[in-house]
């Protein structure tokens, strides 16, 4: 739960709200074809999830916001470049929408989807 202090009172933002921004941002990033559950065991990591909180971990401690996101990436793209743009996009969108500072975005690539084998 993130907290912003205002003169009249406080604004509380749930992890779910932040997770939704993160997962939407990830899905808009080129190369990401799905969000997968963080708790899904190896082997069935291909299960895509709809609920953003299942594929995103939000940690808010000492006014520092860290995001962990679990994604499936298109086979044949440069994974590192895709992951970089996912983390930049998440940071940008969350900071734009909430004014909070995102200190860390960890992108966990849980699998690759193969559309073409070439």
């Amino acid at each position: 739960m993130a907290e912003i202090n205002k003169i009249l009172g406080n604004i509380y933002m749930s992890n779910r709200a932040l997770a939704t921004i993160a997962s939407e941002s990830a899905l808009e990033s080129y190369g990401v074809v799905g969000i997968t559950g963080k708790n899904v065991m190896t082997g069935i990591a291909k299960v895509l999830v709809k609920d953003p909180t299942l594929g995103v971990n939000v940690t808010y401690e000492n006014e520092s916001l860290a995001i962990d996101i679990y994604v499936i990436i298109e086979y044949g793209t440069r994974v590192q470049s895709v992951a970089n743009s996912v983390s930049e996009n998440i940071k940008y969108q969350i900071e734009k929408a909430t004014g909070l500072t995102v200190t860390q975005v960890n992108v966990h690539v849980r699998g690759l989807r193969i559309s073409y084998t070439d």
Binding site: G76, S81, D118
Partner: peptide, 22 residues
């Protein structure tokens, strides 16, 4: 293009060449 892909636009460009090459 795949090996050198930089940034979002670079990744998309590498996909374009990949499809073309196929």
């Amino acid at each position: 293009a795949l090996l050198g892909a930089r940034g979002n636009s670079g990744v998309i460009l590498s996909q374009i060449w990949r499809g073309f090459a196929r």
